[in-house]
Computed example of a mutant assay.
Amino acid sequence: MITAYMLHNQVLEVVPLTTNDVLPPNTIWLDAYKPDDDEREWLSGLFLEDVPEEEELDEIEASARFYWDTDGLHILSLFPQRIGGETRGVNMSFTLRNNLLISFREEDIGVVRLLRHYLRHDRVEITDAMDVLLELQDLKVEYLSDLIEDGYTTLEETSEQVLNDDEIYDMLKELMEQEETNSQIRLALHDTRRALRFVRRTVRQQLTNKQKKAIDEVLHDIESLLPHTQFLFDKINFQLEAAMGFTNLQQNKVIKIFSVAAVVFLPPTWIASIYGMNFERMPELSWAFGYPFSIGLMLISAFATYYFFKRRGWL
């Protein structure tokens, strides 16, 4: 699906395109969402070189994510995508040339939907294609900030579950999900910082003062958010270690009970072993009170061992 955004008198008009259409005049943004082969062939008419392929969206090398060629400025940007309790990064490709921004994405990205909503309600001011790119990056950083705030709330809840046996496994699962979310947040922040620095360095002469200021503000926001991600990492690791320590403590209590039980029953076992010997001459064998004597001796030895452990504070 290809959507064109045309600027008329400072107002953006959104029009879906088919492969039978021509590029409308005053188009500043073409958004290609899951383009099929026919749509890719149609888009190839707008490129001097190759149209970005789907497998290229997962490149991690800086030279493949940020570069300049005859088609203009290319940026491969990572956007966080939250589905249920899982957060993962989704790459979106941008090509900027002659006041036309062409984007490729294989998944429905929430930040793009949010920008479309803002455009319909005139909540953002767009004057050219660069403004669209910068606004997407700004909205992404705001969304990452919201995810960080959610992380603080989640960790406050899990901290109350650390010493609760019934909720320990749910808490561990939540912490693992939060650790993955925080990793995606940190990765997206670093990726956005690299992208904006590349834009500022590469097309600095073409940027307006307002756009330069917007880039600096977003970069400042990123720098202020990165320490929060590190704090969340430390807090997650602390809670994981506390939970594992509590689990080990509970297991040690069980092992301690079995160990004490084995020691308590050791003297009675020793006594029973003595009277289980098959020697011919044992005085107690012909004694009328030999059986109750041996049973009593076992009980006394067991209680004496238990009392000794209790007195020493080992129980």
Rank of each mutant, 00 (worst) to 15 (best):
I255C: 05
Y152K: 15
R312T: 11
E142G: 05
G110W: 10
L7H: 01
Y169T: 14
K213W: 02
I168G: 09
G89T: 14
S159F: 03
I215L: 08
F279Y: 13
E223A: 14
W29S: 01
D37W: 04
S259M: 00
S93M: 08
P292Q: 05
R105T: 00
H228N: 08
E86R: 13
I255P: 00
F308K: 14
G151K: 04
R201T: 02
K212M: 13
Q211A: 08
S44C: 09
R116S: 11
T181G: 09
I222H: 11
L57H: 13
I126K: 01
D234F: 06
L249P: 02
V218Q: 02
E54G: 08
Q184N: 10
V132F: 11
D21G: 13
A262L: 01
I271E: 04
W42N: 10
K213P: 02
I75H: 01
L96F: 07
Q250T: 10
I274N: 11
N237Y: 12
M6E: 13
D69H: 01
E107C: 01
L43E: 03
Y275D: 05
I185T: 10
V162A: 06
N91T: 08
R40H: 11
D166A: 15
F309H: 06
S103W: 10
L226H: 11
N237S: 15
T19W: 11
W287L: 04
V260E: 05
P24S: 10
S44T: 02
L12C: 00
R120K: 15
E59Q: 07
V111W: 00
E284T: 04
Y152L: 14
K213N: 06
S183V: 13
E49S: 05
K173V: 06
Y169K: 13
S273N: 07
Y169S: 14
V14N: 02
Q206Y: 05
D38Q: 08
G45Q: 11
D191K: 06
T127I: 06
E61C: 12
T27F: 00
A288M: 08
R113N: 15
V90S: 09
K140N: 15
L225E: 14
L232T: 00
V112Y: 00
L225V: 01
L48Q: 15
E86S: 12
F104K: 07
P35S: 03
D50W: 07
D166R: 14
A288S: 13
P292L: 07
G85L: 11
F289A: 15
S294I: 09
H190R: 11
N182Q: 04
I300V: 14
E125H: 13
T70I: 12
W42V: 04
L46N: 07
D37Y: 09
V14S: 07
V112R: 02
Q251E: 01
D50N: 11
L219R: 04
I215W: 09
M298T: 00
P283K: 06
L285C: 03
L285H: 00
L133T: 10
L144P: 06
K235H: 15
L134Y: 00
L101H: 13
R116Q: 15
E180T: 07
M1G: 14
N248Q: 14
L73M: 05
K212W: 06
K213Y: 01
L76W: 00
L207V: 12
E217V: 12
I185N: 10
L17Y: 04
M130Y: 09
M130N: 09
